[in-house]
């Protein structure tokens, strides 16, 4: 399945876009997505952290992803 991933902050610079499409197997989890992203964009590995938001909530590694989810890359936040 093809999933759309929103990018923010430094991840936008790394993927050179506001969003990207990634191919995942059916039944893929947040951890699978992270592995795929790190192999396609090795610069992600240098970040202090990379979290994945699924439908506007932080997703645990074992959370299943579906193609209708809103998925976003959350690099280290720095509000305030």
């Amino acid at each position: 399945m093809k999933v759309k991933i929103l990018a923010f902050g430094i991840t936008k610079d790394i993927v050179k876009n506001n969003s990207i499409f990634i191919d995942l197997n059916e039944g893929a989890t947040v951890a699978d997505l992270k592995n795929k992203l790190e192999s396609e964009f090795p610069k992600f590995k240098a970040l202090k952290s990379l979290l994945i938001a699924v439908n506007e909530e932080y997703g645990n590694d074992d959370l299943l992803i579906s193609s209708s989810d809103e998925i976003a890359l959350i690099p280290p936040v720095a509000g305030g």
């Binding site: 430094i10 610079d13 970040l47 936040v77």
Partner: peptide, 25 residues
């Protein structure tokens, strides 16, 4: 908590360069 959990990012612009705050260890 805001500084730990709220998805807001900050870029510092210096005289010769810029950096996404906290992005790298």
């Amino acid at each position: 908590t805001l500084k730990e959990t709220v998805p807001i990012w900050k870029k510092e612009i210096f005289e010769n360069g810029e950096v996404w705050v906290s992005a790298h260890p």
